[in-house]
Design a protein around this nucleic acid. Structure first.
Lengths: 256, 256
DNA sequence: AGATTGCGGATTGTTGACAATCTGCAATAT
DNA sequence: ATATTGCAGATTGTCAACAATCCGCAATCT
């Protein structure tokens, strides 16, 4: 096992006798973040992007070495990531990328449905014109992608659709909670790797109906449609898991 | 400023040559928790109990000294508490017990309403007999306390009522999210110190109606009633803030 | 007088070292 | 052959020291 080539260091050069003039914005931005927060962000990125597989073990020393940082900030980042639901800590054993079981995912889906319902209710009333334009554009692209049965292209569009609506709801607490829940569900989806192109037309129809409700400002309808959309997504996921489409459905990877 | 008398140490005696026999349960329980998790739990307790006032500054060295622990575990606990929404970190400045503004509280109330709605929907279907008995008993005590206009006694009953329902919903992810949200709201309520005895009868009537819906297993009704109960609580809070009952309403304490 | 600059103490950020625990494997015993 | 014991290396938990930053106050300048 070779030590990976040390990637770009996170460190914000401690001593900065460099005469190069920094614009004040740059200075403040760099000074704002501690090493811990940078490590946290980087690990979060690697986890949600799938670079770090579900269930993978995170070695303190290795990560510290790769990011050119001592173990302290890494440990602090671990504590934050645990609260965020992205990793699991086992005392004296190590930390692992969280594995979300089907049962957990089912529960999380319900929470997400409730939050998405509220998002619909609020967004229908508060969405701003430029946000509405973005949603329209996304749905338009969904149609194109759907005709091509391109599941890989559809996936990020789906995320973006819901992201814009969450923003349009104009409630920061709601958005923060929503993000956390979606992150956890992504952990599960990444593990199961189920992306059924068959469902794209159904999903797109859902999105179109939601968009229409938001356009009309019908908050009750938008709420109901979004809630049901999430629950239906869950059911479609169950079906896909029972009838594995082509690839293996559940690679029950354990910790390394 | 005298150094506070060092309270009981958290430390789980490193070397334990003590011959006293420990029951296996004790051993496992102590070994399970790292100092970090114990510090975290202790600080969380102090914050939600109000021992640490909203906005108070938490000094690493002081806390470490009081708990007989080095600064490392304290810093790790801070990171976890930040993600839990209980403290705010300012780089190179320190950590402070989070202050929840009225605007934030309004947003959080909406999130709580959505989660409580889901709790009602699920609890109406899944509540078990002994949980139902507990809810009945709580509502009964609420009536007694309400007749006495005893706001201090009513407050914990209110918490317990919702806690039991959250448990009855039988969804761990929901319960975890709900707890976090309620914690944040408690932060706000503790700051405003509004406990209006006038509202007890109204609140109790709400709870009774919710209980009836749950008994009937009417999930749609329970969902609606719980959602509206939370929103109405928020409105009552607004009224109480506008018409300060007796004591000063908003003691805008800044950091120490 | 009011604003600015320059210490000095206090506090936070980071690091490396040490202690404790776990894991895997080999040696031994049954 | 199987189970148990006892290392040795690797990994995590904790700590104390060092570096960097911030804050308040006095000295200085305009």
């Amino acid at each position: 096992m070779f030590p990976p080539p040390p990637s770009r260091p996170l460190r914000v050069a401690r001593k900065q006798p460099s005469p190069r003039t920094l614009h004040s914005a740059e200075i403040e931005l760099l000074q704002q973040h501690s090493l811990t927060s940078l490590v946290q962000r980087e690990l979060e990125r690697q986890i949600v992007s799938g670079e770090l597989a579900s269930g993978a073990k995170l070695n303190e020393a290795d990560i510290a070495g790769e990011l050119r940082v001592s173990r302290g900030p890494v440990r602090e980042a671990f504590r934050a990531l645990e609260q965020a639901g992205l990793v699991r800590l086992e005392k004296n054993r190590g930390v692992f990328v969280r594995q979300v079981s089907l049962e957990e995912a089912n529960e999380i889906y319900e929470v997400r449905a409730a939050l998405d319902g509220l998002i619909g209710r609020l967004a229908a009333r508060r969405i701003r014109p430029e946000q509405l334009a973005r949603v329209r554009a996304i749905v338009k692209r969904m149609h194109a992608v759907g005709r091509a049965r391109d599941a890989d292209a559809y996936f990020p569009l789906n995320l973006e659709f819901h992201e814009v609506l969450a923003e349009a709801a104009g409630n920061r607490a709601l958005r923060a909670n929503y993000r956390r829940v979606v992150n956890e569900l992504d952990l599960f989806r990444r593990e199961t790797l189920v992306r059924n192109a068959q469902n794209i037309p159904i999903s797109t129809r859902d999105h179109e109906a939601i968009l229409n409700a938001v356009v009309k400002g019908d908050s009750a309808l938008a709420e109901r449609l979004l809630f049901e959309h999430v629950i239906n997504s869950r059911e479609r996921l169950h079906l896909a898991l029972k009838n594995p489409p082509a690839r293996a459905p559940r690679s029950a990877r354990k910790a390394a």
